[in-house]
Structures are given as C-alpha cells and as structure tokens.
C-alpha cells in the first residue's frame, strides 16, 4: 500500500484544493475546464468557506466531479469547514451520502456522518490530527487520506509518517495562502460596512480576498468572508524531493485567482525530476504577495527560510 521508498517518476501525486474564494459560476466552470487538462491527480470541489455562497448547485458540483473523473482525475467533494446552522448540516448530510464521490471532511460533523454511513473518508487541513494516536483512531473508522494541519512541521510529519497505519495516505498543503482561522463574523461584510445577514455577497468583489496591511504598510492577512488567510503564499516548491523522502503521498496546491496553471506546471516538473529541484523563488512572479515557508521548518508560519 505504502509507496514510501519508491522514487520513480510521479511517485508523489498532486491535488488541487478547493477554491477558497467566491467566484461567479462562469469563472468556476472555466477554471475546472482548464484544470481538467492540468497534470493534477486529485481535484477537491465545493464551497468550504461560506454556505451563503451558492455559485454552483450541489448537482453542478457533481457534474464537474464527473467531468474531472472522465479526464482521469480523482474527484473529491469537500464539506464546509465551519458549521453553524441546521440547514448546513442537512446540506452536509446530502453531500456525504452522494453515493458516488469520495468526501473530504473539513469538520468533525462530517467525519461523524461519514462514519455512520460506513464510508471511507478524507480529512481536510482543519480537522485536528496532530499525533499518531489520533491518526490511528480515525484510520479504524475509515480514514483513507488526511491533510496535515498547516502548522505541522516537517519533523512532526516525519514522526507521523513513521507510525502511520497501513492504507492511510498523507497529503500536505504545499502551495497557497494559508487558511489560518474561521469565525462566526464575516470580515468582508464588516470591511464593507454591511451586516453578515445582508452581506450583498460583497466577497464577489474580492475574487482573491481582501488584503489587510499593518499600519506600516506590510501585507499581513487576507480576509475571505468568514475565513482569514495569510497574505503571504506558502510554497514548498523547492521541498518536493524532501516531501518525497518523507513518503508524503499527495501535495496540495490551493487555487489562486491567476496563474494556477503555472503553479501546477512547476510542481509537476519538480516531482517529475526530483534530482533537479527548482529554485525556491521560481514561482514568486506568480504569487499574489510574498512567499513564506516557516511552518515546514517549525518556525513562525510567516517566516521565509532561504537555502
């Protein structure tokens, strides 16, 4: 099951994480038409941030999933990260019981539903798996793949890899603005001076979120509705060989508003030629802000370690 020592071509897979922002339907559909042609192996689909965002209906997401499957990808449906209303649980239950596609649980409510349905499941980065004991327990309940919390260092990941149960795959957040927090409050609505209940879908105006700077003008955080991302873009591009050495199965690339194709292409080159890793800064021109990689080294997430 475990291909930890295999270092042949493409021994590490690439995943496209869910689109974090609120994009209109045309944009989403076009994005995934393109993604179908990219060298990614797994595509996570669905709205994970705000249940008010309904660019696509559940049926349309599943049509996209079917299209991507046709294109040779594994399509996974992702659940909402922060659940508050009963209606959100209902939607989550229907998604878990879709009967065809695997589900990424981004909250323990989804884990519970999938467990009750006796379905194999994947957990997203917001499900707190910090130690081998937790990983083992969830594996017994049907965990097939886990995305590590973004703040786990490569050292801690190595410990997890060392004792991970057979049949469980490890996925690491490898590229994108870091998802750092979720709140009951909608920060985008607040920035626009409107209430969450009458938000007028203002996040449609911020297709890559809304940048927060410190009063010294330093980009700091990125507001995405009820979610807060880092302003800097986390990148493990130069660490692909190290991730392969750790036996990581999947690297996750989080879509950004522009140039996601170039990002995917660079990671694909990196995994195809692990002997000649690309320069860490090779994607800097395509990032919406600065680069960071601190979490990988057990440092503050915003830090940038250069070779």
């Amino acid at each position: 099951m475990n291909e930890t020592t295999k270092k042949t071509d493409l021994s590490i897979r690439l995943a496209l994480g869910p689109v974090p922002y609120y994009w209109p339907p045309e944009r989403l559909l076009e994005f995934y038409q393109q993604a179908a042609t990219w060298p990614v192996d797994i595509v996570y689909l669905g709205e994970t941030v705000c249940s008010k965002r309904r660019s696509l209906r559940p049926g349309q997401w599943q049509e996209l999933a079917a299209m991507l499957e046709q294109a040779g990808k594994q399509a996974v449906l992702s659940t909402l990260a922060l659940v508050e209303a009963e209606s959100e649980l209902g939607a989550m239950r229907r998604l878990c019981a879709n009967g065809r596609f695997r589900v990424e649980a981004n909250d323990m409510a989804a884990v519970q539903m999938l467990t009750e349905l006796k379905l194999a499941f994947i957990t997203g980065p917001g499900v707190n798996i910090y130690n081998p004991q937790t990983l083992s327990l969830l594996a017994r309940l049907g965990l097939q793949r886990w995305v590590a919390p973004v703040e786990l260092s490569s050292r801690s990941l190595a410990d997890m890899q060392h004792s991970r149960p057979a049949g469980v795959e490890t996925e690491v957040f490898a590229y994108g603005r870091l998802p750092l927090a979720w709140s009951a409050r909608c920060f985008t609505a607040r920035a626009h001076g409107v209430g969450k209940d009458d938000c007028e879908f203002r996040c449609l105006d911020d297709p890559q979120g809304r940048l927060i700077r410190t009063r010294e003008g330093e980009p700091f955080l990125n507001l995405n509705g009820i979610q807060i991302e880092s302003a800097s873009t986390f990148s493990l591009l130069d660490q692909v060989p190290a991730a392969m050495d750790l036996g990581i199965d999947v690297l996750r690339i989080t879509p950004q508003t522009e140039h996601t194709a170039e990002v995917v292409a660079a990671f694909h080159r990196a995994r195809s030629e692990p002997g000649a890793p690309p320069a860490a800064d090779a994607l800097d021109a395509y990032m919406p802000g600065d680069r960071c990689n601190g979490y990988w080294y057990g440092e503050p997430g915003m830090a940038l370690r250069t070779a």
């Binding site: 703040e151 750092l180 927090a181 807060i228 997430g301």
Partner: peptide
Amino acid sequence: CVMVEGRCMLSSYVTGQSPNT
C-alpha cells in the same frame, strides 16, 4: 475569541506558537 477555537493559527503564523500546539 473572535475565531472558532481549536482551529485558529493566527498566533503560530506570527510566533510559531499557537493555542493548539
């Protein structure tokens, strides 16, 4: 706490240390 507890990494983003870790 403004953010949902147990899933907030603002502190570790800046300092390397979070409530979770």
